[in-house]
Computed example of a mutant assay.
Amino acid sequence: MAQMNLLQAINNALITAMEEDERVMVFGEDVGHFGGVFRATSNLQQKFGKGRCFNTPLTEQGIIGFANGLASQGSVPVAEIQFGDYIFPAFDQIVNETAKWRYRSGGQFSCGTLTIRTPYGGGIAGGHYHSQSPEAFFAHIPGMKVVIPRNPYQAKGLLLAAVRDDNPVLFMEPKRLYRAAVGEVPENDYTLPLGKADKVKDGSDITLLAWGAQVEIVEKAAAMAEEDGISCEIIDLQSILPWDAESVCESVYKTGRLLINHEAPLTGGFASEIAATIQQECFLYLEAPIARVCGLDTPYPLAHEKEYMPDHLKTYEAIKRTMDY
């Protein structure tokens, strides 16, 4: 075991994958000698050469188009989009090529070996072009997976699983945790299952559901609620496509209440899909309406970032309202 932050765990996972499989290659804007804007790919070019870790032109559509071609011809590309906000120029390639290539070719070709890494989310005073949380856009696309880690241990295990999965995976990294999240990470090779939620804490009164950096937020809110005698069960979804509805239902059967927290805006956020499914499957078990604590329906506001964020205080107040319903 070694102490690593989230960035170091991602870097370690990439080294592990590249050592294990010579088909793995890493590319994106400034990922080579510079190591990327956050240094997640530091030393990869020095270790594996310019043929397996290299810079691309500043064109996200080109990066993913190139990655689709590599994946369909047997390579294992790990493409980096420098910020989640800039993934939208590549939206057409991801939606209409990456996710559909296996289906449209009748299984003759596949982009299943492609992993797309991108940092997302706010909390770093990045403003409205470097702080968005676009995961719900991609949860609407059959044919790929969307994975979000919350700590270094998860980051390495989930990223290695993503690289080796037989489906294209969008791996979204909460950038405000890059250097803030530190923990014990096995130095050996290991994977964690994709599409499976992680129960962070047992509880009996209310289920709190989050992913990425927001798991820490609901943990803080749960600690406040515990002082009021409220027992909170905390679940980290980890993957939002596919998402582990079975584990969430099992928890709600027990607690009778559900609160979903995500940083993306409320309207059309992935909490809506979860709430609809749980209402359908657990209606007779619910003791209160499903609560959503989310970002505001506004472009990400630099001057009002603290007001925008669905923080632990907003979450605590929503826990109290749900319990008092």
Rank of each mutant, 00 (worst) to 15 (best):
G36C: 10
I15A: 04
G183K: 03
N188K: 14
A180V: 09
V200L: 06
Q279M: 11
P289A: 05
V248S: 07
Y129C: 10
Y253I: 06
L194Q: 07
E216D: 13
V163P: 08
L44M: 08
E263Y: 02
A264I: 04
R102M: 06
I141P: 11
D324F: 04
H262W: 09
G35Y: 08
F66L: 12
G121W: 05
D202M: 07
S72N: 01
K175F: 00
A223P: 00
I234G: 13
V26W: 02
S231N: 09
V146K: 09
S251G: 09
Y129M: 14
E22P: 04
D30T: 12
R292L: 15
A67L: 04
G36L: 05
K306N: 13
P77A: 00
S272C: 15
E20C: 01
Q3F: 00
V185I: 08
M309Q: 14
L114M: 15
P89A: 10
Q132P: 03
T267K: 10
H304N: 06
I94S: 01
L258M: 12
I64R: 07
Q8N: 07
Q45T: 07
I206N: 02
L177I: 07
E273N: 04
Y103V: 14
C111K: 01
R23G: 07
Y316P: 14
G106Y: 06
S110I: 10
V76G: 00
D189M: 05
S75H: 13
E20W: 01
M224K: 14
G84V: 09
P119H: 00
A13I: 08
T191N: 08
V169R: 08
A264H: 03
L266H: 11
